[in-house]
Computed example of a mutant assay.
Amino acid sequence: MNADPTPTRTLPAHECWALLRVTPVGRLAFCQGGRPEIFPINFVIDGGTVVYRTSEGTKSRAAEKAAVALEADGLYPDSGTGEAMVWSVVVKGDAATIAVTAELMATVQLPLHPWESGRKDRFMRLVPETISGRAFPHSSANAPINREVSAT
């Protein structure tokens, strides 16, 4: 039985950035103590970098000491083919606290508001070394696009 190969498309960098600009949430990944850690974050794109807010803690301390990756994904609204398209973008690089006063003052003006309650006073900037993305048709035969999840 031969299955048709999935027509995965590699996304150019400009399309990856465009998708990230309209995406409200992603996952920040890094290793801490030899173990992977992944945290959901909301972020904004600022001059070819990713900016997010956090508190003093794991995300701020560990992310400054390790290479990090941000992953975000979603669905293209209508690809024009009648098929839903799934996309995924990964940004890899280094993150650092924004500490220079002028840069911090400019960053505070970004539309970046924490979703989680509590103090999120630390602004962090992920400076990318690489950005990559891909898109492929959603296989509706394998899984539904929308499904309800109940916490039990």
Rank of each mutant, 00 (worst) to 15 (best):
14 H>Y: 15
14 H>K: 04
15 E>M: 09
15 E>S: 11
17 W>C: 02
18 A>Q: 06
18 A>R: 08
19 L>C: 05
20 L>W: 07
22 V>K: 10
22 V>D: 12
22 V>Y: 11
24 P>A: 03
25 V>D: 00
25 V>M: 06
25 V>R: 04
27 R>M: 07
27 R>H: 06
29 A>D: 02
29 A>F: 10
29 A>M: 06
30 F>L: 11
31 C>L: 12
32 Q>Y: 14
32 Q>V: 14
32 Q>S: 14
33 G>F: 15
34 G>R: 01
35 R>Y: 13
35 R>G: 05
35 R>M: 08
36 P>G: 01
37 E>K: 05
37 E>H: 12
38 I>F: 02
39 F>D: 00
39 F>H: 10
40 P>V: 04
40 P>Y: 05
40 P>E: 02
42 N>E: 05
42 N>Y: 12
42 N>H: 05
45 I>V: 15
45 I>R: 03
46 D>Y: 11
47 G>I: 13
48 G>L: 06
49 T>G: 10
49 T>M: 04
50 V>N: 03
52 Y>C: 03
52 Y>T: 04
54 T>E: 04
54 T>K: 00
54 T>D: 05
56 E>I: 12
56 E>L: 12
57 G>R: 02
58 T>Q: 14
58 T>W: 15
61 R>V: 14
61 R>W: 15
61 R>N: 13
62 A>G: 09
62 A>R: 07
64 E>C: 11
64 E>D: 13
66 A>Q: 12
66 A>V: 11
66 A>W: 11
68 V>C: 12
68 V>N: 00
69 A>N: 00
69 A>S: 07
72 A>I: 04
72 A>C: 07
72 A>F: 09
73 D>R: 03
74 G>Q: 03
75 L>N: 07
75 L>P: 14
75 L>K: 04
76 Y>C: 11
76 Y>N: 08
77 P>K: 06
77 P>T: 09
78 D>A: 10
78 D>S: 10
83 E>G: 12
84 A>H: 13
85 M>Y: 15
85 M>P: 11
85 M>H: 12
87 W>G: 02
88 S>H: 05
88 S>C: 12
88 S>T: 08
90 V>E: 01
91 V>F: 08
91 V>M: 01
92 K>S: 06
92 K>A: 03
94 D>M: 13
95 A>H: 09
96 A>C: 09
97 T>Y: 13
100 V>W: 14
101 T>M: 13
102 A>D: 15
103 E>M: 13
104 L>V: 06
104 L>Y: 14
106 A>C: 07
106 A>E: 15
106 A>P: 10
106 A>F: 12
107 T>W: 06
108 V>P: 06
108 V>K: 08
109 Q>N: 08
110 L>F: 07
110 L>C: 02
113 H>F: 13
114 P>A: 01
114 P>I: 04
115 W>F: 10
116 E>V: 09
117 S>R: 07
117 S>H: 07
119 R>P: 11
119 R>K: 07
123 F>M: 05
124 M>T: 06
124 M>P: 08
125 R>L: 05
